[in-house]
Every structure is written in structure tokens, then in C-alpha cells.
């Protein structure tokens, strides 16, 4: 028995250190990985962004706001940090890494929508992108709110990479500077070069995910997907307060929603209230007549395609320009809001 127990202990120690070794290699590798889901975080972590303006948000930022247009119109350096399928708390976690490794931005364009402050009960898309950064306390704190990682993921090496063979392989290769998949650098922007289809028509009035959920007669889940979650709201407010303290100007932006789906436009009053409370601008394009009646600008009811994104970004940039009296360029004057 003594021999058995001793062997089990020795084996466990050996296993722990081997796992810790591989965990380190994969984590370092993923921090350098140029695959689509790690690309922005890699640039953030390497301190390569240092933008004047950052665009924060979900796919509604990621796919709809073109930093190159913003740069051209405002004469600044901007970067899109949009997280596909990511509500606010993961956006915050990403911003915390940004703050640690980059110079603070002058302006944050915070794209908001019906799902920004939703409950995280059903998780969010690709939480694995935060796995290499769990040792950063602010990231850990935010990830704990999402429930995407369990207790053991934080304490046992390699567990956080369980069920992610693709990341394990690409992370290991990337550690040795072998990049199998490279992402085209569009300053974080990922436009959709596709147009409205029959499928989009079917899903009018409701986003794809909500529609699927509705089809399964689980209306309760629809509420979860577009609800205002108290923890997310609290986190959102503390973020705005912190930005104000850091003298970073936040502009809330609600992007255009295709007109026939206007019942999915939610929480306008809430964002309006927050804007007033913290004295920040709230630009609401959800029913903007330039965009929302033209189906050629959308690929589904919730998202603009590349053509629509271009029109939208131009309009947004012009509005920010007039809002700031064109003071962002070369840091001539401080931004003036409201």
C-alpha cells in the first residue's frame, strides 16, 4: 500500500509539472497567435495599438465600424476592439488588458445594443481567447462574472484549454513562431462582404439567435438574451465612471437596425439615462433614416454589410467631428461633450 500511495503522489507531482510546462508554452504561444480570435488580443498584449480612439462593442462594432474611415475623417489613429458575440463584461476584460499594456485612449466609442448588458447565464462566444490572460487579476475578476471558466480552470494547469484542440495546436506552433493562420490586419475591423438573403428575410424582426430560441418555444430565454442584467449594468456604469476619472471620453453609440426589425431595438431609455447621468454623448442610429430603410446596407436585420458599414462609419465620424469641434486631431484641444 505504501508503495502504491508513494507512486500515486510522485505521478501526480510529475503530471502537475508536465501540465504546467505545457500550459506555459500554450499560453505564451496563444498570446502571440495570429488566428482570428486571438489577433486583437495579441496586438493589445504586445502594446502595439496605442490608439487615440478605440471602438468597443460586440459584433455590432467588430463588423460595422471601420477605423480607417475614422482615421481619415478625424485625422486620428483608431482601432476596433469589437468582440464578436461578446457582451459588455468580456469587452471590459479586454479593455483591462488594453489599459495595462497601451497608452490610454482619448476617446472610447462604445457600441451598445439590445444584448450589450444581457445576462451571461448562457455564456458568450469564444471565451477561450481570455484563457492565456487569466493570471491578470482584472481579467480573472471579469471572467468570474461570466462563469466561462470554473474553479479548477483557474487552479489546475491545462484544464482551461480542455476541449480546445485547435487552440492547443496553434498555440504550441505559435510558441515556436509558426503561424499557420494569419489574420489580415484591418485595425480590428472585420467587415461582412455579403448581402441580404432569403434567410435574412425569414429572420426579420428578430436576430438569428432569438429566432432559434423562439422556435423552440422558450420565450423565457429571449428575455435573457436581451435583458438588462444587474451585474452587467453595474459593471458598465463603473467602467464609464472610471473612464471619466481617467479623463477618457466615452461616446455611446446605438448602431442602425433594419426597419422591419425595430422591435428588437431595446434599452434606449437606459442608455439615454446613463448618458445623462455621466454627462456623455449618446448617438442613437437605431432608426437612422439614411440607413435603416435600405436593405442593400444589411446582411441581416441586426448587422450592416461592408457597404452599410462604410456609410455608417462615415456618418458616425462626421458626427463625432462636429461633436468634438474637430479637436481630436493632433490633440489640439480637449474634447468637449454635451
Amino acid at each position: 500500500m505504501k508503495r502504491f500511495i508513494t507512486n500515486i503522489i510522485v505521478f501526480t507531482i510529475l503530471l502537475y509539472f508536465t501540465a504546467a510546462f505545457f500550459d506555459k508554452i500554450i499560453s505564451i504561444g496563444l498570446m502571440k497567435s495570429e488566428t482570428k480570435i486571438f489577433y486583437s488580443l495579441k496586438n493589445i498584449n504586445e502594446g502595439k495599438i496605442n490608439a487615440d480612439i478605440i471602438i468597443n462593442g460586440s459584433s455590432k462594432a467588430f463588423k460595422q465600424v471601420d477605423p480607417v474611415i475614422i482615421d481619415t475623417i478625424l485625422g486620428v489613429n483608431s482601432y476596433n476592439l469589437g468582440l464578436d458575440g461578446g457582451p459588455f463584461i468580456p469587452q471590459r476584460a479586454q479593455y483591462e488588458i488594453y489599459k495595462l499594456k497601451n497608452i490610454k485612449p482619448k476617446v472610447i466609442i462604445q457600441i451598445v445594443s439590445n444584448g450589450t448588458l444581457r445576462s451571461l447565464k448562457d455564456g458568450f462566444k469564444d471565451p477561450i481567447k481570455f484563457a492565456p490572460f487569466l493570471n491578470i487579476s482584472e481579467v480573472k475578476k471579469n471572467m468570474k462574472l461570466t462563469g466561462s471558466f470554473n474553479y479548477w480552470d483557474y487552479h489546475i494547469p491545462m484544464l482551461r484549454y480542455s476541449y480546445f484542440p485547435f487552440e492547443i495546436i496553434t498555440g504550441t506552433l505559435s510558441f515556436f513562431n509558426i503561424q499557420l493562420f494569419k489574420t489580415k490586419d484591418l485595425k480590428g475591423y472585420s467587415p461582412e462582404n455579403k448581402f441580404w438573403s432569403e434567410k435574412s428575410q425569414d429572420k426579420i424582426g428578430i436576430s438569428n439567435k432569438i429566432k432559434e430560441i423562439e422556435n423552440s418555444n422558450n420565450l423565457q430565454k429571449v428575455d435573457i438574451f436581451t435583458s438588462l442584467d444587474s451585474i452587467s449594468c453595474e459593471n458598465f456604469e463603473s467602467f464609464i465612471a472610471e473612464c471619466r476619472k481617467d479623463k477618457i471620453n466615452v461616446i455611446l453609440v446605438y448602431p442602425p437596425i433594419y426597419t422591419e426589425a425595430d422591435k428588437t431595438i431595446k434599452h434606449i431609455e437606459y442608455f439615454d439615462k446613463i448618458a445623462k447621468k455621466y454627462n456623455i454623448p449618446f448617438l442613437n442610429y437605431s432608426r437612422d433614416s439614411l440607413l435603416v430603410y435600405n436593405r442593400n446596407y444589411f446582411y441581416n436585420s441586426q448587422h450592416l454589410n461592408i457597404k452599410g458599414a462604410s456609410v455608417f462609419t462615415k456618418k458616425l465620424s462626421e458626427d463625432i467631428k462636429s461633436l468634438t469641434n474637430n479637436t481630436l486631431n493632433r490633440n489640439k484641444k480637449k474634447i468637449k461633450v454635451n
Partner: peptide
Amino acid sequence: YVLIVLFIITFGG
């Protein structure tokens, strides 16, 4: 054995 355990931890469905 270590390799099998790591394989289970990381490549499991």
C-alpha cells in the same frame, strides 16, 4: 501515462 492523461485533459470532447 502522463501523455495519456494530458491527452484526456486537453483533447477531450
